[in-house]
Nucleic acid binder design. Structure first.
Lengths: 228, 228, 228, 228
DNA sequence: AATGAATGAGGGTTCATTCAT
DNA sequence: GATGAATGAACCCTCATTCAT
């Protein structure tokens, strides 16, 4: 099922990517930290406004009100500042503070809560998720990053499916990994379509409807029995 | 469910995009037609090798053994030649020639056959599908194209779901459109992961396993009853 | 002794450097050839005026009255155009047309004639030789080029020394290679000082005096007996 | 002939260059002196490793473990710190402590001793001499410095040649200045080739052979008679 | 005296597009 | 129709130097 209630979600940083943007060490002065932070904030805004490709370094430095040279004090390239943007966003998403649901509760309820937390986190970072999608398709480095994150997410859901199977609560004909890939992909695709691509006015469903449908499909697909 | 047996699939060109690359009309001479075709063939090869962004026009003209100037005789831009590449691939996919399955047969069998046809078509054009994914995230024009194609596909599957519901063969709690978006997205995401992203050796499942899982999840998700 | 009368001199290109500037193939049209030649001519002028380091590509393209882009049609870098300049100069020096002196004549006369031819060729290309000295100390590639050329020159003179020793006309205590390195170096250093570095007014000797001194030192150093 | 036994060699600072790097006065505090010295030491190491041109000020300050700003407390530019490096090396070479040879001894022995002392001093500072060669070809200031040093050296040897001529021990046909330029140039070129350019394995002669050849050529060239 | 962040002029380089031949 | 040389705007990036702390 979707990201567990506590910390984790698609933004978990695999250990190896822990400091993807820190090839250059952090500045030592307060002033330096401030400048670096303002560059990251400016970069995020500009990326979201113009898209990754159309963003010129000068757009970022202008938005951050600093010179071109200053950019290179902190980042070696557009890729690197983008990695830093993702890293910051990730910090922001590390603790979504989703309401806990008892682990031994009704599986369908747990799935619904997970899905809801996932969609809400996605919504908060929708523009960034769209950017990541774009960048992942352009730069293999970020493609790998996206995939690694997705796999952590898939692995978690696979464990959950296996657990349900062992408890006799899910279709044992399904391979947990393959089912998790399919269903996790389904949910993230729904989120992408809903928040990033968008649908024409009148076509777009409400978030509640979307969550309801995603959850019901997920529960049905695993043949999780109704509570009673 | 997945692309019906006959013509259609994600490559259906919506009427409005019928001749997206033919803003300029086809050349009149045999020589011109040959040159244009060789440019398109070369472009496809180069795009697949270098990716859309890293392909320069000169790469295409070199591969087509013609001059830079000639390119502009047939295409106004990289976008246009890419549209032409897609169009040709689409011609190639128009008639997948999949074995027919009786429409009134076992729904699960129909779904399986649809999925199989879809995955096979995807496999034949996997590199191009990866490219389309990339270009769609870069160029809104192609983003729209991809979305339109996806929606034709979703609409067809939504009709199928609705039909099953009316016949009492599918979960009536589900909104046909939303369910179709979710399940269609699930299948195309599976195909993308399987054929484009790939998985590390040993992690990759066989195509049959993937089809089996996709089909079973789809059937379960709709609560389509077993045949007997 | 100095470069033999016919073709060769310090500008002999070792086979491997035969086309050092032709990494990019030669243009196919007359127009292209003209442009390339004008770039090389402009580059030589600018290099001689500003020195290698202070020459900017834009200085060259301005002098050649073409755009920055055109430069890159023919050369990948400043190094490459400099190699082309050297290559052209070399063509120019391939046939200095020095007056022949009978090989069996008075050794001292042969040496004098060789030295004279060498100094005259050096004078014709003095500015370029100064440039080569500069570039060789900056770019190892050209350092190697200079060394290779010097060695061809040294080897020729070493053979000549050995020949005189065998005929009983030169000090047999001397190692021909080491003596050739020393004397060849002496002459090229004299030429460099005389034509490139220059001396303050009034300090500078006449070319004839320089040739006379170089020759007498060379003859003495080898203990070549006087004619009579 | 070569550097006399006592102090002198090509590194003699002409009076006018006595403090070429001390446009700014020495720091007054111990700390300042230490910092300045560490910058000079670091600069020498970095220059020798990277060459003059490829050395950036930040390379020097990093090696000296101080900040960029501190550099400017002591030096106005890269040229200035290079001049300081040369000056320090010169201090180091001021007193080579070569064994004295009686001035009235065998001229050939005196010349050999001079040459040996010169080559040994050159060897100790080979990398720096290579650097000086490079910088002299780049920066006219240092070109002048090198030339001035060379001329002191040439003048000394010219006096020695004149003295031998007056004592009837050297070829009176030779102009002492021109001969000195030629022979001094020969020796310094030999040293440059031997210690800086180097020769391929197996091609390189031993230092003793080189000194022997240089001395014999020098003695021969001046027609200095054998002792007995 | 020392720091190190900030600057920005100045250079190199690319490549889609045009156009004379 | 085909050619390929010419263009030049647009961008990236470096690094010597300054200066507030």
């Amino acid at each position: 099922m979707q990201p567990r209630q506590t910390d984790s979600d698609e933004f978990d940083a695999p250990p190896s990517m822990a400091r993807p943007s820190l090839l250059r060490e952090l500045p030592v002065t307060q002033r330096g930290l401030r400048t670096r932070a303002s560059l990251i904030a400016a970069a995020r805004k500009v990326f979201e406004r113009l898209g990754y490709l159309d963003t010129r370094l000068v757009d970022i430095t202008k938005a951050a009100k600093c010179s071109a040279g200053t950019f290179y004090t902190y980042f070696a390239s557009k890729e690197e500042v983008f990695a830093a943007v993702l890293e910051v966003a990730q910090e922001d998403m590390m603790h979504p503070g989703t309401p806990r649901v008892a682990d031994d509760g009704d599986p369908a309820q747990i799935i619904e809560a997970s899905n809801r937390a996932y969609f809400q986190a996605y919504e908060r970072n929708a523009e960034l998720m769209g950017l990541l999608e774009q960048v992942a398709s352009i730069d293999p480095e970020f493609g790998k990053l996206r995939r690694d994150r997705g796999e952590a997410f898939i692995a978690r859901n696979a464990r959950s499916i296996e657990d349900l199977q062992e408890r006799g609560l899910a279709d044992v004909e399904l391979d947990p990994i393959l089912a998790s890939r399919a269903l996790s992909g389904m949910v993230s695709r729904i989120a992408y379509n809903h928040f990033v691509v968008g649908y024409r006015e009148g076509e777009s469903a409400s978030l509640d409807e979307v969550i309801y449908t995603a959850t019901r499909l997920w529960v049905n697909a695993l043949r999780i029995p109704p509570v009673n």
